[in-house]
């Protein structure tokens, strides 16, 4: 008998990826859009029995104009601040029709999640609505021209935080906020790590209640990177601990899914025009902050869950 080579097994990174393609081409995303990859991977796992709820954000546009829809599943476009509440409503309606197995997924930007949609999201999470809420985080209001959001990283340039007045304060820790609601599942996802990404989507799909997926989304025009560099940038975000990959079960049980390589954050910042103005001290400061946050995460990972 011939030994099975690891190679033949691992040659195709993800074996059955192609059999389940739902999102089609022809959509209106910019070249190299990370948000688009997030949607593509998500839909691969979620499958056709899904209703997508999209508030005002880039994805309103990417999807295509009436009467077209690149997603191949029903989409409800809704107001900027209402993704979670609209999804709750869709869920209730479907449940009423006995379609409890249909996935209801809200897919919102960071502005629609961290800022204006936060109260609706908090409400849904507190009620533990049976929905999956995805936030694709491109770290600014990109659709309207790169305005700062509370997801914008510290000291980054945006049109509302121009050079000389970079964004003050750290990026809001949205996972902590959601974890504080005690929802069954909250996780960070990165399309540069497709296996980890798909696994987390599968985990979310296998559960009930409010599940929150936070996806980093490189935005070539907003981050001022070449369109070919978006996967590289996202990978560096995780390897430099700027966007660690982990999951939180029931708001308490932390599990780090990718050990960051500890790439200096300098390398991650250097490749992006939005950080061009940073001084060496700035970079050093960001590095120390990220190191601290990583330690914090490690500590959380070691805590035993509350066992009433």
């Amino acid at each position: 008998m011939k030994a099975v080579s690891e190679f033949s097994k691992s040659k195709r990174l993800i074996k059955d990826f192609k059999e389940r393609e739902i999102m089609g081409p022809g959509h209106l995303a910019c070249q190299g859009c990370g948000a688009t990859l997030n949607m593509r991977y998500l839909l691969k796992e979620a499958g056709p029995n899904t209703v997508m709820v999209i508030p005002a954000c880039c994805w309103t546009i990417i999807d295509g104009q009436f009467p077209f829809n690149t997603l191949g599943v029903p989409v409800m476009h809704t107001a900027f601040e209402t993704a979670a509440s609209a999804a709750s409503g869709v869920r209730a309606a479907l449940d009423r029709q006995g379609k409890e197995d249909t996935n209801v997924i809200a897919f919102a930007g960071d502005g629609g999640t961290f800022d204006i949609g936060l109260q609706a999201l908090s409400g849904a999470a507190e009620r533990n609505e049976n929905i999956i809420y995805c936030c694709y985080d491109n770290e600014a209001y990109m659709n309207t021209g790169i305005q700062r959001s509370s997801a914008t990283p510290e000291l980054a340039w945006t049109t509302t935080t121009p050079e000389g007045h970079p964004k003050q304060g750290k990026k809001k820790d949205i996972i902590q906020i959601l974890a504080a609601h005690g929802i069954p599942y909250a996780a960070t996802l990165n399309a540069a790590f497709p296996e980890d990404f798909l696994k987390k989507v599968r985990t979310a799909l296998s559960m009930k209640g409010t599940r929150f997926l936070h996806m980093i989304s490189a935005c070539p025009p907003g981050w001022k990177i070449d369109s070919s560099m978006s996967i590289k940038a996202m990978r560096m975000a995780t390897e430099s601990k700027a966007f660690p990959l982990y999951e939180v079960y029931d708001g308490v049980k932390y599990h780090i899914t990718h050990e960051s390589k500890g790439t200096p954050v300098k390398d991650y910042l250097k490749m992006q025009g939005r950080f061009r103005h940073l001084t060496a001290e700035n970079v050093d400061f960001i590095q120390r902050r990220l190191d601290y946050q990583w330690e914090q995460l490690l500590h959380r990972g070691q805590l035993e869950p509350f066992n009433g």
Binding site: G24, L28, F66, F68, N69, G72, V75
Partner: peptide, 16 residues
């Protein structure tokens, strides 16, 4: 109720 059922594949983004 406006429902979009058509795919976007007609849109030849290759021209970009």
């Amino acid at each position: 109720i406006v429902i979009s059922t058509g795919h976007m594949t007609w849109n030849e983004t290759g021209t970009w």
